[in-house]
């Protein structure tokens, strides 16, 4: 009992007197996952973090904090101390909060530890759809305006960006947009015939395509995908898409800006190493994600470019609440 108290007391003394970044981590790290359990952000974070923990030599306790399209989690981390003990595990959405009127913070208030991977969007149709590829779909929509039902996941979601892209490149898209909670439920509805076309992330649709319960219309990328070598790419149908692609949702680990440099360096090294783990790479590959592993200045450049392109695309499609200009986001190419 004496040892117990003595130990506990000295542990306190140690943390109070020498909580310098050198010993980081001296306590467990809270990992706040922006999305719910079982979602793709959750799966990715829960599968990379144990590898990073091993290198870091500490424990990361992961918690899901949902709500407000991820803004609740973002604000929680932004309100915590900038000491590296509260880490945000999120996706691309915060970059759109400002223009969508969902919040006044985004990743410019954070330091990127690692932008792990990027997803590739794909346009899929139900097995009974009267068209087999992108060109066929556009013809069908022209012949039957306002008839085809597109799945959506709310303003700012991947489908809204892809439909904005199609509208901009093709000069119009007369379809019904049916909102769902996420691409999972929407793809289920696609297989049941409740919607006809869904812009989704490749990883979510890949198994359905393999089984023949969905038809790939076009991959939204500039290069063919190794996972689906037979699926056509959208730039082959219309070169106009080259302006916007490659584009895709991404996952990243962040800490609040102002976190000591050596803590950032330690975390960055741990996640960079953890993301190289063979099991993790295979998992990401199976789900059709492209590994990025960006940090530091590269990550900042990527985030800035992504935000410019996407916010202005949405702005031009009339989907935003406030212009990107108000927040000092410059139009791309200017």
């Amino acid at each position: 009992m004496k040892h117990f108290l003595l130990g506990a007391a000295s542990a306190l003394v140690v943390t109070v007197s020498a909580a310098s970044a050198q010993d980081y981590p001296t306590k467990e790290i809270q990992g706040i996952i922006q999305w719910g359990a079982g979602g793709s952000t959750d799966t990715v974070m829960r599968s990379v973090t144990p590898h990073a923990e091993a290198i870091l030599g500490g424990t990361v306790v992961m918690q899901n904090m949902t709500g407000g399209v991820g803004a609740i989690a973002l604000n929680y981390v932004a309100d915590a101390e900038a000491d590296g003990y509260t880490v945000l595990m999120g996706a691309e959405n915060p970059l759109l909060y400002k223009v969508m009127g969902l919040g006044d913070k985004d990743y410019s208030d954070f330091t990127a530890i690692n932008l792990l991977a990027r997803g590739t969007p794909i346009l899929v149709a139900g097995p009974d759809a009267p068209f087999d590829d992108y060109a066929g779909m556009m013809d069908y929509i022209k012949a039957h305006p306002g008839e085809v039902r597109f799945g959506a996941t709310g303003p700012g979601g991947l489908p809204s960006v892809i439909t904005a892209m199609i509208t901009t490149v093709e000069g119009g898209l007369d379809v019904i947009s049916v909102p769902y909670d996420g691409d999972g439920p929407a793809l289920t509805a696609l297989q049941g015939g409740a919607i006809d076309v869904m812009p989704a992330v490749l990883g979510a649709a890949i198994e359905g395509i393999r089984a023949g319960s969905m038809k790939p219309l076009a991959i939204f990328d500039t290069e063919k995908n190794a996972k689906l070598p037979d699926a056509p790419i959208v730039t082959d149908f219309n070169a106009g898409y080259n302006t916007f692609l490659p584009w895709g949702p991404f996952f990243g680990v962040f800490v609040k800006k102002g976190t000591p440099d050596d803590v950032v360096a330690k975390l960055t090294a741990a996640y960079a190493e953890g993301a190289k783990n063979a099991d993790f790479v295979e998992l990401m590959d199976n789900r059709g994600f492209t590994m990025m592993g960006l940090s530091g200045a590269d990550a900042e450049a990527f985030l800035a470019k992504w935000q410019q392109g996407t916010t202005w695309l949405l702005q031009d499609a009339g989907l935003t609440k406030a212009s990107p200009e108000e927040f000092g986001i410059a139009r791309p190419g200017k």
Binding site: T43, R46, S47, I206, R210, A211
Partner: peptide, 17 residues
């Protein structure tokens, strides 16, 4: 939904296949 995530993590691909 979480179990599907678990299957993914363990290298399986839950889906119609």
């Amino acid at each position: 939904a979480i179990m599907i995530g678990a299957l993914f993590i363990h290298g399986l691909n839950p889906g119609p296949m």
